[in-house]
Design a protein around this nucleic acid. Structure first.
Lengths: 211, 211, 211, 211
DNA sequence: GATGAATGAGCGTTCATTCAT
DNA sequence: GATGAATGAACGCTCATTCAT
């Protein structure tokens, strides 16, 4: 009915409410931790009725997914905006941005996100399609494949394996970051390691250029 | 405070009860996590009435204080039994044993372990002592330091960084293994990657071999 | 109340909407039962907004009033297509068809049907008209009466009682079939019993045959 | 610790509370129907705190099981106290008592009981052992077997089939009784039918008595 | 007339804590 | 000291109903 450009004031209000709930949730979870925050806490903080939470989110847990999505939404874009750079630079940047996003989401939200996704697939979110893990792998692979097309990597680069390797390293950093209350593996600490891994792991596949 | 030589049988029984509650709490909390364990769970496990918990602890949280005197020591032993091997072999073995142990524990136990250790410090067990993470890092460092002493690695090997790096990779494998219902990153799949990482990460610091 | 010849398109639309809601409600309530169907379920099924329900009905319950004008007529046809057969054969066939129909509907549908019809009259569908139970009794009675007219049964056959008896047996089979996950009282098992009952119950009223 | 004869006042109080809750539940469910009664309604009626309901019953549904058990508890005993009577009398009595128990439990409780047991076995009660259906079959079979031992029935009596047949008839009565708001198939109406079924079904297996 | 976001009371259930015995 | 029945606030979540647009 709409040409999807102009929003009715109803729609704008709904988006606003959704945003208010998300920000209230972020604030409350950051302060007290997911388990200690009740849905009505969040609703109160957002200035809406308890039931309104469920207008926008099916389950309490779902808010974590949403907060995570917000934090990581810029990831893909960043990669796509580095056309001129070398593979190492692209991947290095990817890793930095990833860890920055982890940090920005905050300890409690990251923890809850992990808890949600550790759960067996069947009991977790709808799984209607692709998981965050699969998404991350795909993003990484697309960077590597792009690099192959541009001649930055050899044709026989083991894309699958490298994507898995780098990604598992990042997941490890994320996990340790949560386990140590943010004291170990923060973006500040990991950027050196990122470069180190990348140099050692990817360079064997860079064609002639004596990097 | 007491002259403390002879205890009445009532006092002895009390000490016994207290100990039973503590052990039951340790077991239950390690299995399910502090928040998910109820006082009556602990009491049932200990074989006492729910109310008896409150004879010894004013609040549920108080039990955490008592439990933070954890004994520790685990994987280090494996390492110490490989005197004759090369660093790469030692580390490779460490990684294999680690992932095998992960697999042997089973998906659900591994998941629960992750959930427990992701938890924020305040509600977690063993946080005033040494954490599993710290223990793992120490074990890895001792392997590397031993190798330096034996001349298998150069003096300037960045022990701290390598230990962190390898360990975070293993944690990443473990996390992904849980997230994919055991379909990705099992020990079968990861052993090649372990060698690959180790070769790329550690070999630069092996003295003679001209990288 | 209106001169009621020409309707504005708005009025025509309103009548249409009302009809859609009624049909959606009938379908949903038959499937899930009144209590388990929410107003928004009905609205969704009808393809209108939740609020629109309240344009036509003041309260959720009001829809029941409207739905109680049920069309009816089902099993009777089967019976009427067996003109040449004996009473026993007719009834036997009725019982087989009944249990086959039960089985064909499937466990879950049969269960839901039972739940719906067990429900107290106030919340049940089709309660001011004729119930399924009454329909089944009527069908059975018409078979018996027809048989009397044709001289297949004696004039003093207790039609009412026999109809009730046979029907309650069939309902009992149906119930047990659901309660045992389809393992007991399926059509395969019951057909022998059907004949057995019929022989024992009906034959005393068959004129000549000196049982 | 107790020799199970003398009850402490604590235990007596608990039994009293349990009884209060059961009677409050019976009253409330009879008045309003299971779905319309909340656990806190029951607790209020019983004069206890909401949570106390869960001291005695794991789920709201469980109260139905309990009420049913009370109503049917005398069934087995009655049968066992009729040593001198004929098979027909015993079974006739069983059927009467069964339907009386159905009636005594009340429409709403009987309905809820049916709803609970129609559900697929896996989602229903614990099933740790024998279902009500199986229990009823066993009771009926024991009556028949006893009669065989006493020479009241022939050795070749199809015990299994008869037990199934009679029991399914009773279940059918129960179902119809609920479906017709207690207007059809009450104990007053069914007792004649019970005798009729029994005479027709069981008598062929009575040894000497000249059919 | 139609919409659907917003409401808030109410649901079944859990559990830390108390206290009479 | 030990008990376990009793408490009642709080939880996540549902849904009939309202009303500004």
């Amino acid at each position: 009915m709409n040409v999807a450009k102009e929003l009715t004031s109803r729609q704008k209000g709904a988006i606003e409410t959704r945003k208010k709930i998300l920000e209230a949730a972020r604030k409350a979870i950051l302060e007290k931790g997911f388990d200690k925050v009740s849905v009505s806490d969040i609703a109160k903080e957002a200035g809406v009725a308890t039931g309104s939470f469920y207008t926008y989110f099916k389950k309490k847990e779902d808010i974590i997914e949403e907060l995570n999505k917000t934090d990581f939404s810029r990831l893909a874009e960043i990669v796509n905006q580095m056309k001129g750079k070398s593979v190492i630079e692209k991947l290095d940047n990817y890793c930095r941005v990833f860890m920055k996003a982890v940090e920005r989401s905050g300890l409690e939200i990251c923890r809850q996100w992990l808890r949600n996704h550790i759960a067996s697939a069947s009991t977790s979110l709808e799984n209607s399609g692709i998981t965050k893990y699969q998404g991350d792998i795909l993003a990484m692979k697309s960077v590597l494949n792009e690099a192959i097309r541009q001649g930055q990597l050899r044709e026989d680069t083991p894309v699958e394996e490298l994507a898995f390797l780098i990604n598992s390293q990042l997941y490890g950093f994320m996990l340790i970051w949560c386990m140590t209350d943010g004291e170990v593996a923060g973006s500040g600490q990991t950027k050196n390691y990122c470069q180190y891994i990348l140099k050692n792991s990817v360079q064997p596949y860079i064609p002639s250029a004596p990097q």
